[in-house]
Nucleic acid binder design. Structure first.
Length: 320
DNA sequence: TAAGATAAGAGGGACAT
DNA sequence: ATGTCAGTCTTATCTTA
């Protein structure tokens, strides 16, 4: 891959790559060593491994992409490319800098511009390490995807959030796996496919504490909005896990809407509440389930079920 | 064995200093 | 920024039916 000399060769390169458009092919990614489909993002000028986010171009020596020695060369070859699904904007930033770099040596450039270019260069170099942690995070994301059973849109959303966190410098001083876990949690919430913090904490092997901390940081710094957790979905989850009959499930959903209407649900762990509502519904329909069973299904404790249940009994006067 | 009670501890929100 | 306070949830242990 030649260093881009000027706009003409840049265009030529884009043209070459353009010929590859819509040809995704199977090959082994040099970074993650996984044999998988490598896709070209039609909106950017990058070819991207869809497993780890490794950015590459076809018809070039792969190794030179990431085994650069010389700073200048590295900078010139840098292609900051988030993977396919993430490349929504600031596409090809490094290429632009590469072009300006040449301009700086070739054409006489306004000296006042030099410092600006220098800054850009540094920024660009930083994105190189950004890409490194990005790649690590994305491959981690891939393994978590299977463990948590995340859908593709959730994975993309999580990756997007993580990348935004990168850009805003939120990762500095924070553990990126933990930030990734927080991003996953947020993505799940946003895509309306709730996973509990505990599930994510356990599968990612990251302390729940750090996930919640970074979760808050992300919400605040990225000004994200999270939809309220759908308590009915919690009911469905717990019910399915505890093998509750459809009849009782429906009863529980009705009961839950009443609970929500009366504001009993605010500030309570939705899963615990759902379990308590289900427990109450089981009593109503005569289905036999122990508090412990429900608690386990909701990943909470019997104490919580009891407390919630007592609340329900007091406030809804359900005695039967 | 399930359910209930109680206590100690952690973590975080609200609010004041 | 730091501290306090009330409320929530968890873990552990004991008692009751």
């Amino acid at each position: 891959m030649a260093i881009l000399q000027d706009k003409a060769s840049l265009n030529k390169r884009n043209e070459e790559i353009g010929n590859l458009e819509r040809t995704s092919e199977d090959k082994t990614c040099p970074l993650c060593k996984q044999y998988n489909t490598i896709i070209r993002d039609s909106k950017s000028t990058e070819i991207v491994c869809n497993k780890c986010g490794m950015v590459m171009a076809d018809k070039i020596d792969m190794r030179s992409e990431w085994q650069t020695v010389d700073r200048e060369e590295m900078q010139a070859k840098t292609r900051t490319g988030p993977p396919l699904s993430l490349a929504r904007h600031d596409i090809g930033a490094s290429t632009v800098i590469g072009r300006e770099n040449i301009d700086a040596s070739k054409n006489k450039i306004n000296p006042s511009m030099l410092s600006a270019i220098y800054r850009l260069r540094n920024w660009d170099l930083r994105t190189q390490t950004h890409n490194h942690t990005l790649r690590l995070a994305l491959s981690e994301l891939d393994t978590l995807k299977d463990k948590l059973g995340l859908s593709e849109p959730i994975v993309e959303r999580a990756a997007y959030i993580f990348r935004k966190a990168h850009e805003k410098g939120i990762l500095r001083g924070r553990s990126s796996p933990a930030v990734l876990a927080a991003a996953i949690y947020i993505a799940c919430r946003q895509m309306d496919a709730p996973r509990t913090l505990n599930e994510i904490a356990i599968t990612s092997n990251i302390r729940r504490k750090s996930i919640t901390r970074y979760h808050r940081a992300l919400i605040f710094k990225l000004e994200l909005k999270l939809p309220i957790i759908d308590t009915k979905k919690c009911i469905a989850r717990v019910a399915n896990k505890a093998n509750i009959s459809e009849k009782t499930k429906h009863q529980a959903i009705n009961l839950m809407s009443e609970v929500v209407k009366r504001g009993i649900s605010t500030g309570k762990d939705p899963m615990g509440l759902a379990a308590a509502v289900l427990y109450a519904s089981c009593i109503m329909t005569g289905e036999q389930r122990s508090q412990i069973d429900l608690a386990r299904a909701a990943q909470t404790t019997g104490v919580t079920i009891r407390n919630r249940f007592k609340d329900l009994a007091n406030k809804l006067e359900l005695h039967d």
